[in-house]
Amino acid sequence: MSVFTSDDPLLQVHNVTRYYGDRIGCADVSFDLWPGEVLAIVGESGSGKTTLLNCLSTRLAPTTGAIEYRMRDGTMRNLYQLTEAERRLLMRTDWGFVHQNAADGLRMTVSAGANVGERLMAVGERHYGNIRSTADDWLGRVEIDSDRIDDDPRSFSGGMRQRLQIARNLVTHPRLVFMDEPTGGLDVSVQARLLDLLRRLVSDLGLSVVIVTHDLAVARLLSHRIMVMRHGNVIEAGLTDQVLDDPREPYTQLLVSSILQV
């Protein structure tokens, strides 16, 4: 168990701004994220969601602002002051990153088992049998049959690849997972199944999640809190149900009313 209480935030974001030359990627974003909390960042294409996510996950340095993370020993560290080695260790143990396109997050040329086992081997696991049984266990948890363990992800369907990517990220029991449109490009029934799975895993493992999506239904299903972005700014934030049921900003009202009703 972690040594701090869930009253302390896991991630603190202070005035993060990212410019692309003269243009704004995201501007002056601040929020706290608590352990076990799922935060959705929604908005249309080009609203700065992904820029913000990349800043948070140390994939893109913000122009100004600070991001602090509570390490496993309970100390608060500025992510951009970590050494490269510390940052890499963090990314492959305490964090996960689920890409929209599973091929970006997987090694497509090695088997499913090796994909799941890679993080274990990176942190020093050297027992083939243990790695394999852990991989097998995780494939089961994401509903991939055991007999696919030696198959390449290339032979997997889109939904399976996405589930494999999730298993690969969760195998080291991370505390914080970033997700970039995890259900993008999947058909509706596969989406529903993936969302079900994600919701179960998140609550079972007590994960904190920052999820970027343009799909309000995904946000509604998974997240506790929501931030609505437009033109790089956060225009509205609050509890998911509150924001979606009673949007305050005209733009949010527009977003909510644009959902197709069947």
């Binding site: 492959r92 090694r107 090695v110 088997s111 088992g113 090796a114 086992g117 890679e118 993080r119 081997m121 990176a122 942190v123 050297r126 083939y128 790695i131």
Partner: peptide, 9 residues
């Protein structure tokens, strides 16, 4: 870690 991924394969 990657080196062992190859041996695992």
């Amino acid at each position: 870690g990657l080196m062992h991924v190859k041996l695992y394969e």
